[in-house]
Write a protein that binds this DNA or RNA. Structure first.
Lengths: 341, 341
DNA sequence: CTGAAAGCGCTAACAG
DNA sequence: CTGTTAGCGCTTTCAG
């Protein structure tokens, strides 16, 4: 009987037809997928752990691109993709334990996330995307530090020395304001830590005292946060020539704030982002483009690949510096005298 | 032992601690979720069936809003949300059979979709969103016919009598071109059928011969399709005063095409949409807003609500006519003579 | 090709 | 409070 459903080739078509027909007449709804999964030890689905609020995942183009890539990989493999209900507020790890999946993809969570810990306890393969950077687990990501280092060098070459930084949340606690160097080093979000490290390295090499550079953090990730953070930096340090944002969303917010203040970009203020989302491209933002869809696809492939899983694998995707129209050489005092403000 | 994991209250904390400690030492990874699901008859997840390509779902703001609402409802209930791998090309229904879920949400599929048939065979509750309109199943949607009827009346009141229509795909076969009245009536996508019916009713009442109104269909749903479809209508019927699109995405494409032709909107051509997505609002589109996020949330609640399930329930959400800046009274020939073209 | 039986790992019920 | 046991529905194996 089982054969009728699962191995059409093991019995005659005629018999198969008869069995199925009878089953239907008896009201048999087909094999129970859960019982089958128990027996075959395959759930036919992978779990996705996003620690951010779900709304965030569906509104941030970068997260969305990742999700799309992952979903495509799953679709190719005929595998379901299960969104694990794990909001950062509720520390209810039970959902991770309850999920009947063959593996997990963990996207951009802090290294001290309890849901992540629960995932790692499960005896199924796991792929971590972007962060955190933990040993012994498959990983997909980019080299955030180098990418940001390169962007910084681009600005340094233009002549920028007085800069400000706007970054995303560095830990699970809300800290909408200035960030000490200690907090930068202790950041639980590895991606943000790496990007800041890249900046610190480049500017230190250029003779800038990094501890003096204003770095402002925002917990929420949207353009309003970018606006507020940019305002905070510009209020305290009106003399900066460039505002470096660790995401395009924040940078787009900063652009709004610059406009509101009558600052021309890039003549009066250089603004840069990170991610390479479509909205940024449209705005001509100077930024770093990362292949978000490919990241999702790679994570899915890595998880679903049945190949050797002897030692942790790591996939590093390449990024590209996008030279937009929001970065230019800072005007010197002399130039301002000459050409007017 | 099971109690130690599932009923902390049934035994002393001390014992619980000891049991868990021992379990860990023995390398026990915790209860297997699949076996538990088999025993408890609860999978702790709901399945989402989207028949469109997944990429579509992640790029169309309306679908995305629905997905977000559904995901929120699931998160609130601590339930997983599983995306079922069902692309329209591959007619592989197995994924539906394989999915270990407690119920299905079906979003916007044609009434003859094989995956839908497979879902309905499964002995679990199902909620259909938008379409198709099948009996005996819980449903969430809006009154597409009335909403479009109201929009049409708005245009008729302005004086529009010569109109063209651009609509989304009406069936699973590709038909990028004109649509006969027969095809309109036979459409497998109920939503599109209802919107066209609303238009037909309003314009017929206003004395317009609906069979003479050009209706153009596009299989793909993006602005490029909207542009091409608008071009097709305008090429054949340059005298129309209004172009009614059955989605905002198509309408935004039509706006591009109008601009390319040097037609001013709304002075030379009225354009309307449907959905009320953010991009449309930004463009000042005259459209019908529907609560997409609420639709998703309502679908989730309906599915997860353990209440009486004696007879099929139906949730109808309300829509709102948005009077934008893309619709105005058509200029008469006399006016054109007077004011210039 | 057919039928019978073991057992996947768990939870719930019940007896001690 | 603790230990034992039946059985969820399936697939796989093995004997006929």
């Amino acid at each position: 009987m089982s054969n009728a459903y699962n191995r059409p080739d093991q019995l005659s078509p005629e018999l198969r037809r008869r069995v199925l027909e009878t089953a239907r007449r008896l009201g048999y709804p087909g094999p129970d997928p859960v019982a089958r999964s128990l027996r075959t030890r395959k759930a036919g689905a992978v779990g996705l752990l996003l620690t951010e609020n779900l709304s965030y995942a569906f509104r941030d183009p970068a997260a969305l691109g990742f999700l799309e890539g992952l979903a495509l990989a799953c679709e190719d493999a005929g595998t379901g993709l299960m969104l694990i209900p794990a909001s950062p507020e509720r520390e209810d790890v039970a959902a991770v334990h309850r999920a009947g999946v063959d593996g997990f993809v963990v996207y951009s969570v802090p290294d001290d996330d309890p849901h992540l810990a629960a995932v790692l306890e499960r005896p199924v393969p796991t792929v971590v995307c972007d962060q955190p950077d933990i040993g012994n687990v498959d990983r997909v990501g980019i080299d955030d530090r180098s990418a940001m280092y390169e962007l910084a060098q681009h600005l340094i070459a233009m002549g920028h020395r007085r800069v400000g930084v706007v970054c995303m949340r560095l830990a699970r606690d809300r800290n909408d304001g200035y960030v000490s160097v200690d907090r930068q080093h202790a950041a639980h979000f590895h991606v943000q830590r790496a990007r800041l490290a890249g900046l610190a390295m480049a500017f230190s090499e250029a003779g800038v005292d990094w501890s003096k550079v204003p770095v402002v953090e925002r917990f929420d990730h949207n353009t309003a946060s970018g606006e507020a953070a940019a305002a905070q930096v510009l209020d305290r340090d009106p003399s900066i020539t460039a505002l470096i944002c660790t995401s395009d969303i924040l940078a787009l917010g900063a652009m709004n704030e610059a406009k509101r203040r009558g600052l021309r970009v890039p003549e009066d203020l250089t603004i840069t982002g990170f991610d390479g989302i479509q909205e940024a491209e449209r705005a001509g933002l100077t930024t770093v483009r990362q292949p978000v869809l490919e990241k999702g696809r790679a994570a899915g492939k890595l998880l679903l690949d049945v190949g050797e899983r002897t030692r942790p694998r790591s996939v590093n995707l390449s990024t590209e510096l996008i030279t937009g129209t929001t970065a230019a050489a800072p005007r010197t005092i002399a130039e301002e005298r000459w050409f007017g403000p």
